Amino acid sequence: MSNGAYNSIEHRATVNAMNERISFATFFNPKLQAKVGPAKSLLMNTGNQPIYKTLVMEQYLKEFFLNKLNGKTFLEKMKIEDEAHET
């Protein structure tokens, strides 16, 4: 979403020997028809070209779960390698 302007932080948790810790994984996704990619407002403010693809959420999920990464992260696979790309 940030087109590489912001890095995600590492998840950290503090262990407490006196109390149990319970974690719940939650996921929030846009509807399957929504476009996901670099935020247009960040691109306009900086004048940068997108370096990541924009996909419909359904296609993003398909590629995420079916893609053979061959040692790459999915984020690397989402990079636009061709200069002649569409947004």
Rank of each mutant, 00 (worst) to 15 (best):
V56K: 13
K72S: 11
R21V: 05
P30C: 09
N3V: 12
G47F: 13
T46Y: 08
K77M: 08
L55R: 03
V36C: 06
H11A: 07
N67W: 00
I51C: 12
T14Y: 06
E83A: 12
I22S: 05
P30F: 07
N16L: 04
K77G: 03
N16D: 15
M44A: 14
A25C: 05
N7Y: 02
K35C: 10
G47S: 13
L32M: 13
K77F: 05
K35W: 10
G47E: 12
N16M: 00
Y6H: 14
E86V: 15
E58N: 13
V36E: 00
K40S: 13
S2V: 13
E83R: 07
P38Q: 04
M1Q: 14
F27M: 13
F27I: 09
P30M: 08
D82F: 05
N70L: 04
I22H: 02
Y60T: 03
I9V: 03
K53G: 01
A17C: 11
N67Y: 01
E81L: 14
I22W: 04
N45L: 12
Q33L: 02
I80T: 03
V56P: 02
K77W: 04
H85M: 12
F28N: 03
T26L: 14
N67M: 05
I51Q: 09
G4N: 11
E86P: 10
E76T: 02
I9C: 00
G47P: 09
Q49D: 11
I80H: 00
F28A: 07
L75I: 12
H11G: 02
E58W: 09
K68T: 11
T73I: 08
K53S: 04
H85I: 00
S8N: 14
A39L: 09
M78S: 06
M18L: 11
F24H: 01
F65P: 01
D82M: 13
M1V: 15
G4E: 05
K79T: 10
E83L: 09
Q33V: 02
N16Y: 01
V15G: 00
F27N: 07
R12Y: 05
S8M: 14
E58I: 10
T87R: 15
N67T: 11
L55F: 13
I22E: 09
Y6S: 10
I22P: 02
E20S: 04
S8D: 15
Y60A: 03
Q59Y: 07
M18D: 03
I51M: 08
V56Q: 14
T14H: 05
F24C: 05
V36L: 08
N3C: 11
M18Q: 10
D82P: 06
R21Q: 03
L69Q: 02
Y52S: 02
V36Q: 04
